[in-house]
Protein backbone atom coordinates (compact mmCIF):
# COMPACT_ATOMS: atom_id res chain seq x y z
CA UNK A 1 0.00 0.00 0.00
CA UNK A 2 2.75 2.33 0.98
CA UNK A 3 4.68 1.48 -2.09
CA UNK A 4 1.82 2.41 -4.41
CA UNK A 5 1.41 5.83 -2.70
CA UNK A 6 4.96 6.86 -3.43
CA UNK A 7 5.24 9.07 -6.46
CA UNK A 8 7.71 8.10 -9.03
CA UNK A 9 9.99 10.99 -9.89
CA UNK A 10 10.83 10.83 -13.50
CA UNK A 11 13.48 12.97 -15.00
CA UNK A 12 11.86 15.06 -17.74
CA UNK A 13 14.40 16.03 -20.38
CA UNK A 14 13.62 19.21 -22.29
CA UNK A 15 13.90 18.50 -26.00
CA UNK A 16 16.66 20.78 -27.20
CA UNK A 17 17.71 18.90 -30.26
CA UNK A 18 15.65 21.11 -32.57
CA UNK A 19 16.72 24.43 -31.00
CA UNK A 20 19.55 24.87 -33.48
CA UNK A 21 17.22 24.28 -36.39
CA UNK A 22 14.73 26.80 -35.02
CA UNK A 23 17.45 29.41 -34.52
CA UNK A 24 18.86 28.97 -38.01
CA UNK A 25 15.37 29.04 -39.49
CA UNK A 26 14.82 32.37 -37.72
CA UNK A 27 18.05 33.77 -39.14
CA UNK A 28 17.17 32.60 -42.64
CA UNK A 29 13.64 33.97 -42.30
CA UNK A 30 14.90 37.45 -41.38
CA UNK A 31 17.57 37.35 -44.07
CA UNK A 32 15.00 36.53 -46.73
CA UNK A 33 12.28 38.88 -45.49
CA UNK A 34 14.35 41.95 -44.74
CA UNK A 35 14.45 44.60 -47.39
CA UNK A 36 17.39 46.82 -48.19
CA UNK A 37 16.53 50.43 -47.51
CA UNK A 38 15.24 52.26 -50.57
CA UNK A 39 17.27 55.19 -49.37
CA UNK A 40 20.39 53.41 -50.50
CA UNK A 41 19.49 53.75 -54.17
CA UNK A 42 22.54 54.46 -56.24
CA UNK A 43 22.09 58.24 -56.27
CA UNK A 44 25.26 60.26 -55.93
CA UNK A 45 24.56 63.26 -53.73
CA UNK A 46 26.78 65.60 -51.74
CA UNK A 47 24.60 66.56 -48.81
CA UNK A 48 24.54 70.13 -47.50
CA UNK A 49 25.75 70.72 -43.96
CA UNK A 50 24.15 72.62 -41.10
CA UNK A 51 24.32 72.81 -37.33
CA UNK A 52 20.56 72.73 -37.13
CA UNK A 53 19.89 69.27 -38.55
CA UNK A 54 18.30 66.76 -36.23
CA UNK A 55 17.68 63.05 -36.39
CA UNK A 56 14.55 62.53 -38.42
CA UNK A 57 11.79 61.03 -36.28
CA UNK A 58 8.99 61.12 -38.83
CA UNK A 59 8.08 58.19 -41.03
CA UNK A 60 8.34 59.22 -44.63
CA UNK A 61 5.88 58.19 -47.31
CA UNK A 62 8.29 58.77 -50.18
CA UNK A 63 11.95 59.48 -50.82
CA UNK A 64 12.82 62.02 -53.46
CA UNK A 65 16.41 62.57 -54.50
CA UNK A 66 18.03 64.91 -56.99
CA UNK A 67 21.44 63.64 -57.99
CA UNK A 68 24.52 65.72 -58.74
CA UNK A 69 23.76 65.58 -62.45
CA UNK A 70 20.22 66.85 -61.86
CA UNK A 71 18.36 63.60 -62.33
CA UNK A 72 15.27 63.12 -60.18
CA UNK A 73 14.59 59.87 -58.35
CA UNK A 74 11.33 58.85 -56.73
CA UNK A 75 11.85 56.03 -54.24
CA UNK A 76 15.02 55.08 -56.09
CA UNK A 77 13.38 55.06 -59.53
CA UNK A 78 14.37 57.72 -62.02
CA UNK A 79 11.52 59.95 -63.17
CA UNK A 80 11.33 62.48 -65.99
CA UNK A 81 10.46 65.63 -64.10
CA UNK A 82 8.91 67.43 -61.17
CA UNK A 83 5.41 66.73 -62.45
CA UNK A 84 5.96 62.99 -61.97
CA UNK A 85 7.01 63.70 -58.40
CA UNK A 86 3.85 65.71 -57.78
CA UNK A 87 1.60 62.97 -59.15
CA UNK A 88 3.47 60.30 -57.23
CA UNK A 89 3.28 62.11 -53.90
CA UNK A 90 -0.32 63.11 -54.52
CA UNK A 91 -1.23 59.48 -55.18
CA UNK A 92 0.49 58.38 -51.99
CA UNK A 93 -1.22 61.02 -49.92
CA UNK A 94 -4.77 60.41 -51.14
CA UNK A 95 -5.75 58.41 -48.06
CA UNK A 96 -3.75 60.31 -45.48
CA UNK A 97 -5.56 61.50 -42.42
CA UNK A 98 -2.96 63.13 -40.19
CA UNK A 99 0.04 65.38 -40.76
CA UNK A 100 2.35 62.60 -39.56
CA UNK A 101 1.62 60.74 -42.78
CA UNK A 102 2.61 63.61 -45.07
CA UNK A 103 6.38 63.63 -44.61
CA UNK A 104 8.44 63.30 -47.77
CA UNK A 105 12.21 62.91 -47.63
CA UNK A 106 14.08 65.26 -49.93
CA UNK A 107 17.72 64.73 -50.73
CA UNK A 108 19.52 67.06 -53.07
CA UNK A 109 23.08 67.74 -54.10
CA UNK A 110 24.44 70.81 -52.31
CA UNK A 111 25.87 72.36 -55.47
CA UNK A 112 22.80 72.17 -57.68
CA UNK A 113 21.31 75.49 -58.83
CA UNK A 114 17.83 76.66 -57.97
CA UNK A 115 16.43 75.93 -61.42
CA UNK A 116 17.01 72.21 -60.91
CA UNK A 117 15.68 71.57 -57.42
CA UNK A 118 13.08 74.26 -56.82
CA UNK A 119 10.45 72.76 -59.16
CA UNK A 120 10.77 69.50 -57.22
CA UNK A 121 10.31 71.28 -53.88
CA UNK A 122 7.26 73.05 -55.26
CA UNK A 123 5.90 69.79 -56.63
CA UNK A 124 6.13 68.15 -53.20
CA UNK A 125 4.47 71.15 -51.57
CA UNK A 126 1.72 71.25 -54.20
CA UNK A 127 1.01 67.57 -53.62
CA UNK A 128 0.61 68.26 -49.91
CA UNK A 129 3.84 66.78 -48.63
CA UNK A 130 5.86 68.07 -45.71
CA UNK A 131 9.47 68.28 -46.81
CA UNK A 132 12.15 66.56 -44.78
CA UNK A 133 15.29 68.07 -46.27
CA UNK A 134 18.20 65.74 -45.58
CA UNK A 135 21.56 67.14 -44.59
CA UNK A 136 24.61 66.41 -42.50
CA UNK A 137 25.56 67.91 -39.19
CA UNK A 138 28.47 70.33 -39.32
CA UNK A 139 31.48 68.99 -37.47
Amino acid sequence: MRKSQRKKRRSVPVPIASMGDIAFLLIIFFLVCSEVSKDKANVRVTLPESEKVEKMEATVVARIAVSEDGEIYFDGVRVDGAKDVEWGVRALLTNTVTDDQRHVQFKCDANLPKETFEPVLKAIAEAGGIIEAVGEKTN
Partner: peptide, 13 residues
Protein backbone atom coordinates in the same frame (compact mmCIF):
# COMPACT_ATOMS: atom_id res chain seq x y z
CA UNK B 1 18.05 51.53 -37.39
CA UNK B 2 19.10 54.01 -40.03
CA UNK B 3 18.01 57.51 -39.10
CA UNK B 4 18.82 60.28 -41.48
CA UNK B 5 19.18 63.84 -40.27
CA UNK B 6 16.89 66.39 -41.76
CA UNK B 7 15.05 69.67 -41.49
CA UNK B 8 11.27 69.81 -41.66
CA UNK B 9 9.71 72.37 -43.94
CA UNK B 10 5.98 72.53 -44.58
CA UNK B 11 5.73 74.69 -47.65
CA UNK B 12 2.28 76.11 -48.25
CA UNK B 13 0.80 75.03 -51.55
Amino acid sequence: LVKVKSITADLPA
